[in-house]
């Protein structure tokens, strides 16, 4: 079995699709520079030339429009933002234009673009390099939103996104770049709208978005090794469309749920999942909690930043409280070496 890191999987997916399909192009600030978007576009400019892989001016708004226009003409552009925060400058094109174009033109156009963006965390990313604004997009019809946590899904989902005839927002996370997993060498697609169960369990369901899926996986190890609680960890992978059925089946079994957003909590995926379980899946009598970023601006100093994000310990403690109500306080033994935890399969 061949093991790749997350950025290697993203790079390979792009390279393979560009080789198969000459309509695939890559644009964004720094895509052809020596750092090559943390390696994810490495070698592509040399291999495919400067009309297919090009650096852009610092014009996020217009360059999103340019990608849209190129897609209208039948190209399949991948527009990359090294930080998700920069997408805020492109909201006009993303929300007012691309999400609506097929609809407002009565189905007479297709806009097959992929927007890749990377969420930052730690090393002092601070207020403006750490945001994770997928809940804003989830409110908008006409966008597909994908946030895989494993290299395997990163490759399959990115290929699926490139081949998709609708706009896809593809969300990565800087810390997921350390993840490794089994990744087949051949091109393959991972269909949207299917959640991935990262680990099986019967006591509580932990739904983690993007890098929080990995924190949930780590939490599940603390829980099992130290308390015997078996958590089922789910990575939704696809946020829109959302696979509520897989989550509903799990919660039906466990009766307990924590959703760990990789974003602020209000109006986030936690709110969405709990409401849909109640309203659509008609589940009753389950216990649910939401976790996510502290509702404040992300502080730069590590002394405060450590309180900003949920982590394996805080998730495990919350899960323990839900599974063992009334029991005395439990804190996981952080000496357990779990930083390396990653989901390698089976896929």
């Amino acid at each position: 079995m061949r093991i790749l890191t997350y950025p290697e999987a993203v790079r390979e997916a792009t390279d393979q699709e560009m080789s198969i399909d000459p309509s695939v192009i890559v644009l964004g600030q720094g895509v052809d520079d020596p750092k090559a978007i943390l390696g994810t576009t490495k070698g592509l400019a040399a291999k495919f030339g400067p009309t297919r892989v090009f650096d852009t001016p610092l014009s996020e708004d217009a360059m999103t429009g340019v990608a849209i226009g190129a897609a209208l003409a039948g190209l399949r552009p991948i527009h990359i933002h090294i930080r998700m925060d920069f997408m805020l400058l492109a909201m006009n094109q993303l929300v007012n234009m691309v999400a609506k174009m097929r609809y407002m033109f009565g189905g007479s156009v297709s806009v097959p673009i992929v927007i890749r963006s990377i969420i930052g965390k730690s090393w002092g990313q601070g207020p403006q390099h750490s945001q994770s604004i997928y809940p804003l997009f989830m409110n908008i019809p006409g966008l597909k939103i994908i946030a895989p946590s494993t290299p395997y899904d990163a490759k399959g989902c990115l290929i699926n996104a490139i081949r998709d005839n609708d706009p896809v927002i593809f969300i990565e996370h800087r810390l997921l770049y350390y993840q490794k997993s089994y990744v087949p060498a051949k091109p393959y697609t991972t269909a949207f709208g299917k959640a991935r169960i990262l680990s099986k369990g019967r006591d509580i369901t932990l739904v983690g978005i993007s890098q929080m899926a990995i924190e949930c996986l780590r939490a599940s190890i603390y829980l099992f090794k130290e308390t015997g609680i078996r958590a089922e960890v789910i990575d939704p992978v696809s946020l829109a469309p959302l696979d509520i059925d897989t989550i509903a089946r799990s919660v039906k079994k466990t009766g307990r749920l924590i959703i760990v957003d990789n974003a602020w909590v209000p109006c986030g995926l936690g709110a969405e999942i709990i409401s849909r379980l109640l309203v659509e899946s008609k589940l009753k009598g389950f216990v649910a909690q939401r976790m996510g970023f502290a509702h404040t601006t992300c502080p730069t100093t590590p002394a405060l930043e450590k309180y900003f994000y949920p982590n394996a310990q805080s998730i495990a403690m919350k899960a323990y409280q839900i599974c063992r109500p009334g029991k005395k306080h439990w804190r996981p033994n952080t000496k357990l070496k779990i930083e390396e935890v990653e989901f390698k399969g089976p896929f």
Binding site: D61, G65, V66, A71, L72, A73, L75, V109
Partner: peptide, 28 residues
């Protein structure tokens, strides 16, 4: 689209970059 009319937008200025991107694809 049969007559090359690629659409119009009600948000001022939004079609200018889209038209520019279309031109990029034509040149490509």
């Amino acid at each position: 689209t049969n007559h090359g009319i690629m659409g119009a937008s009600a948000i001022v200025g939004t079609m200018i970059p889209v038209a520019t991107g279309y031109a990029y694809a034509l040149r490509y």
